[in-house]
């Protein structure tokens, strides 16, 4: 555990030693603002809630989270520091957890910095703040799922660009499988059971109620499992590919 903390500190500060974290947070804040106000019509809806803001999160994460995850392992392999790291008395699991938690913390920070939106709706009306907090937590959890996919893809390749693209593609599949475009296309020639299964793999399906502030055990469980599975897959990939 002490190792995870030490590794976490290194990973976290390396986000800020390079402009990565600043650029990420800045773009996240700008885009979430643009989406909520111009496309989500936060004002015009005349409702004191942050639903338009949260609804766009899956699409924001789709491109932004892979950008923050892509360097996690690729960089280590490219620069050879993976050899240094893995001959220190730390386990791959500890490294993996530290990398995940550090990047997740950056995502959490980006979410926290959207607080002016929350102030705005509180100034304009009286929203249910419990719902907003629940939606924030749900969004952060979903960001973790995107992140786990991105880190796993980063473990597969030395090239950050390849890792980025792979992560977007896989994340896209996970987002899209629950969208009406895909589900409509399959309606009619897939049995409803299969269709439900397909939809149940989607981030959108599980985030839908979270964005409304409903934290259901199965949604939380789903994201936790997705995070666990992808991080474990990444672990195996690192073990397999470290020497290449």
């Amino acid at each position: 555990m002490a190792n995870v903390i030490t590794l976490f500190r290194r990973e976290f500060s390396s986000f800020f030693a390079t402009p990565v974290a600043y650029v990420f947070i800045l773009i996240f804040l700008m885009l979430s603002g643009v989406f909520s106000f111009y496309i989500g019509n936060l004002y015009e809806r005349g409702q004191a809630d942050l639903l338009p803001f949260f609804n766009f999160h899956p699409w924001l994460y789709l491109f932004l989270v892979p950008a923050i995850a892509m360097r996690s392992w690729s960089e280590e392999r490219k620069s050879g520091t993976i050899e240094l790291l893995m001959t220190l008395p730390v386990t791959i699991l500890e490294i993996m957890l530290a990398k995940f938690l550090a990047a997740w913390a950056v995502l959490g920070l980006a979410l926290l910095l959207t607080f002016p939106l929350w102030l705005t709706v509180n100034y304009l009306g009286s929203p249910d703040n419990g719902i907003i907090i629940a939606a924030y937590l749900g969004s952060w959890l979903m960001a973790g799922a995107f992140l786990a996919i991105g880190i796993c893809m980063s473990a597969l390749t030395k090239s950050q660009v390849v890792a980025f693209i792979l992560a977007i593609v896989v994340c896209f599949v996970f987002v899209l499988s629950g969208s009406s475009i895909v589900l409509d296309a399959f309606t009619g020639w897939l049995s409803p059971l299969l269709l439900d299964t397909l939809a149940s793999f989607s981030f959108l399906t599980h985030f839908e109620s979270m964005a409304k502030g409903v934290i259901a055990l199965d949604d939380v469980g789903y994201f936790v499992i997705v995070i666990g599975v992808w991080l474990y897959a990444g672990l195996l990939a690192v073990e397999q590919k470290k020497a290449e």
Partner: peptide
Amino acid sequence: PEGAPAYGDMTVVEFLSFIADIRG
């Protein structure tokens, strides 16, 4: 290791402190 890899974004003293922490 060959080529003496180290974390480029850390300063020398940060890097050595990090290794010292990991080494307990």
